[in-house]
Design a protein around this nucleic acid. Structure first.
Lengths: 209, 209
DNA sequence: GTTGAAATTAGTACGAA
DNA sequence: TTCGTACTAATTTCAAC
């Protein structure tokens, strides 16, 4: 099973935790940056591109894998070519107490490529890939609807995947002035059309079952 | 730039298109299946696992790359370890005529890991990774809000990524009885709590600007 | 599409800076 | 720690079958 959550009591480490093990320096990040673009590069070539010795590259490479900073290497496939040209997002509202059951059922659905727990109106978003639009219908009405943990769903189709970056590193971002902890976010930003949906706020709308 | 859309007039090939070039047989799919789990496996080991000769594996491997069925190899990183522990989904409503501009702006935002055009209430979903919750706020209110193409946004946070499969192959799915083209989807499925959101239907709700 | 042997490259170990 | 070198194992290429 491809479950990226670590087994600390059933939920993954909350996002935001950093550096439990290995302390990553700029050389480590440079290595990750090369590897995200070319996961099959040889360690020798990697060493050269990063500007370190081959031996050092081997050491760091292994450390990154052992530490879990690199979770795995994978090939990105053209899903259309592979016969799975239909992609859909299914937003699911889950009965919170039945969360474990929901996860177990998900694991049994190979069409599911990605699942994340979100704040907002729904509790989870799952991304599925199938070969035919009718399969989405079958999947949602037959499979998902039959999971007692599932309270409601909302499905949208993906018409085009405009961008997929392997991942992003802090080094990609332009340096931002470090904000002091007690300093709050700037309050003078014109909000207007922008809307943030917190977990409690959004969920309240669905609490009428 | 990491743009997975091919340049046929600015939009990628619509999902559902299959086999423009290479015809993929079951051996090709088996190769992809191995490569999705271990992108760094040697071709020799790959050949053994698939049950073909090395030379054959090299030929097919190269063909898959050249054809574009394998788009690239990449390392999956633990974003938290790399200092980008905050993940958010931003649903964006775009002024359709300004779509090109929106894409151009997206390309200039390294925080964006994924962007897909969807049916439903919004027009696009983007996934961003940053190191701090406040950066999401800055990103949405400062960067996105200043793009004229952006009409409205809705932001949710990802609390946990429960599952990420490298991709899914048709061979993963259990064989389904092939439905004849004129046959429609079964109409006797109890719908109830399930909801599909088509592009037109959902968008009508936002057409009040 | 397969096998096997040559050339190249990868991975490891270890002493020196 | 990191580097450089030398040594061993494995991989890729390319030939003939």
């Amino acid at each position: 099973m491809s479950d990226i959550s670590r087994d600390h009591g059933g939920r993954g480490a909350p996002p935001g935790r950093i550096g439990i093990g290995l302390e990553l320096d700029s050389t480590h990040l440079k290595i990750l940056e090369v590897l995200r673009e070319n996961g099959r590069i040889s360690v020798a070539a990697l060493a050269e591109r990063v500007g370190i010795s081959r031996a050092n590259a081997y050491t760091r490479f292994e450390a990154l894998r052992a530490d879990g900073a690199i979770k795995r290497f994978t090939a990105e496939i053209d899903h259309g070519r592979a016969g799975l040209g239909i992609t859909a997002l299914i937003f699911v509202t889950v009965r919170q107490v039945m969360w474990r059951q929901f996860r177990a059922e998900l694991a049994r659905m190979p069409e599911v490529e990605y699942c994340a727990i979100t704040t907002g109106q729904h509790d989870a978003m799952i991304q599925v890939r199938v070969s035919d639009v009718s399969e989405v219908h079958t999947l949602v009405t037959d499979r998902l609807a039959n999971i007692p943990a599932v309270k409601a769903t909302e499905t949208v189709f993906i018409l085009d995947e405009v961008m997929r970056r392997p991942y992003v590193l802090p080094s990609d971002q332009r340096p931002r002035p470090r904000r002091q902890p007690q300093e709050s976010a700037p309050a003078d930003v014109p909000l207007g059309k922008m809307r943030f949906v917190g977990a409690a706020e959004g969920r309240a709308a669905l609490r009428k079952d």
